[in-house]
């Protein structure tokens, strides 16, 4: 506040000084005019010469110039210079905006490219993963199928073996019974039943052993 008042007072003092100075400038030159005019008259050149001294014309020039300065300042220089500055500012803004937008566009393009690269990588990854999973699944299925087949075949073989052994057993027993009943019928009394039975059974044992050897052979 104090400083503002101080600077205003200084400004006013400076203004007074400037006005005084302007007056001194004008007055010192105006003082020269009568001297020149006297010299002119002394030579008797009169009004119409090339160097005619006419203070009135000086005043007219000042008045006309100052009016022109005022008029132009108000209605010409203000608008023209204002429009020029506005246009310069507008052009500068447009240039700044263009450069800003170009940077933005470059940045976006870069981003887009990165995104594209990333998605391509991802697609590749997904494809590879899928292929691997498919491969694994196929091999698992194959393995499973093989194992199942083997199991089925193994089971069947076992079943057949067992059925055959059972059939042989049954057959053998049947044969023994048949033989005994047949032989009993033939040799009824002749042969001690228990002795013969032992013989026949031995024989049948031999038969079975032989057939077993044959089978293994």
């Amino acid at each position: 506040m104090m400083m503002a008042i101080e600077s205003r007072r200084r400004g006013r003092a400076l203004g007074k000084g400037a006005a005084a100075l302007a007056l001194v400038c004008v007055a010192s030159l105006a003082a020269a005019l009568p001297l020149l005019a006297q010299e002119e008259h002394g030579e008797g050149a009169g009004g119409g010469g090339l160097f005619a001294i006419n203070p009135g014309l000086v005043i007219w020039t000042w008045v006309i110039f100052l009016i022109l300065l005022f008029v132009l300042r108000k209605w010409a220089w203000g608008p023209i210079l204002g429009a020029l500055e506005a246009r310069e500012r507008r052009i500068q803004e447009a240039l700044d905006g263009a450069s800003r937008e170009r940077d933005e566009a470059t940045r976006l393009l870069e981003q887009q490219r990165k995104l594209l690269d990333e998605s391509r990588d991802q697609a590749q990854q997904i494809l590879a993963d899928g292929r691997k999973a498919g491969e694994r699944m196929r091999s698992e299925l194959l393995e499973e199928a093989r194992r199942q087949r083997e199991q089925i075949v193994g089971n069947a073989k076992e079943d057949i073996e067992r059925e055959r052994d059972q059939a042989l057993e049954v057959l053998r027993r049947e044969a023994v019974n048949l033989s005994i009943s047949a032989a009993g019928r033939v040799l009824e009394l002749e042969v001690d039943s228990s002795e013969n039975r032992r013989l026949v059974e031995e024989y049948l044992e031999d038969l079975a052993r032989e057939s077993g050897r044959e089978k293994s052979g």
């Binding site: 009568p34 203070p55 014309l57 022109l68 010409a76």
Partner: peptide, 30 residues
């Protein structure tokens, strides 16, 4: 000591014409 004759002269008229044309041209430009 100075006597100022403020009667308009030929050059005063041309000063005025120049100032008028100048003002018109520049205001038109504005």
């Amino acid at each position: 000591a100075l006597s100022v004759d403020l009667s308009p002269t030929k050059h005063v008229i041309w000063l005025m014409i120049a100032a008028t044309l100048c003002a018109l041209t520049l205001i038109w430009t504005a």
